[in-house]
Amino acid sequence: MSTWPAPVTLTHPLARLEPLLPEHHDALVAAAQDGELWRLWYTVVPSPEGMRAEIQRRLDLQAKGSMLPFVSVDAGGTVRGMTTYMNIDAANRRVEIGSTWTAASVQRSGFNTACKLMLLQHAFETLGCIAVEFRTHFFNQQSRRAIERLGAKLDGVLRHHQKLPDGSLRDTCVYSVIAPDWPAVKAHLQWQLDRPR
């Protein structure tokens, strides 16, 4: 098992990211029910019935060293979703931030921005990453806009990149933030969090 990156809890006044545990099951089911997120065709969010299997899948990938899964928790202590470092490339100090979903009631708030700030800051300032990737479905316009608001740049589109559970083929938009971008991206994210909403 890879020891890079090691499990860690990340904190911000608006959010906390904690290592995923099987005990988070019921709270994650409640978060996914907020907006019935599993019904969105262009993304994969576990249904209440599939949550236990998804938690185990992520923990199995963690054991293999290819994923570091988190639950996202709001300032009041309520679990609001999941996110990960995935496709971990320890030799090249690269990670992807992905397999992320957030309860509908906290979308388009400062919550997701705070989570991304914590993940990016840890990646660049603690782990010494040279690049952080983000990937999303071509048709997931909400996710694409959110990634672009972070300051990530579009590297390209992988055509027919994945087969989805419904049999459709996903074109995947690949974005990245590279280490030289980080100071400006960090300042931008902090500005977004500090400005009145």
Rank of each mutant, 00 (worst) to 15 (best):
D26R: 11
A15E: 03
L37A: 06
E18G: 05
L40E: 13
L59Y: 07
N112E: 05
I88E: 11
Y42R: 09
R94V: 15
E23H: 06
A114L: 04
R80L: 01
D60S: 12
Q62K: 14
R94K: 14
F111G: 06
R16T: 14
R39W: 02
A53D: 15
H24K: 06
D34A: 01
W101A: 05
R58L: 15
S105R: 15
S47G: 07
K64R: 15
P46M: 04
W41I: 10
T43G: 02
Q62A: 12
T113M: 09
G77E: 04
L68N: 00
R52I: 02
R94Q: 13
F111C: 04
L61S: 13
A30L: 13
A31G: 04
R52T: 13
P22F: 02
I97K: 02
A30W: 07
E54Q: 14
D89L: 05
L37S: 01
S72I: 06
L59K: 09
L17Y: 01
P48V: 08
M82G: 08
L59H: 06
S109A: 00
R39I: 01
V45C: 09
V95Y: 03
D74M: 11
T113A: 06
Q107Y: 00
E96T: 01
A32I: 00
R93A: 14
T83P: 07
V71E: 06
E18W: 05
V73T: 08
P46V: 01
I97P: 00
R80E: 03
T43K: 11
T83S: 14
A31D: 07
G77Y: 05
Y85P: 08
G35D: 03
R108M: 04
L21T: 13
D60I: 02
Q33L: 14
E18I: 03
E49Q: 14
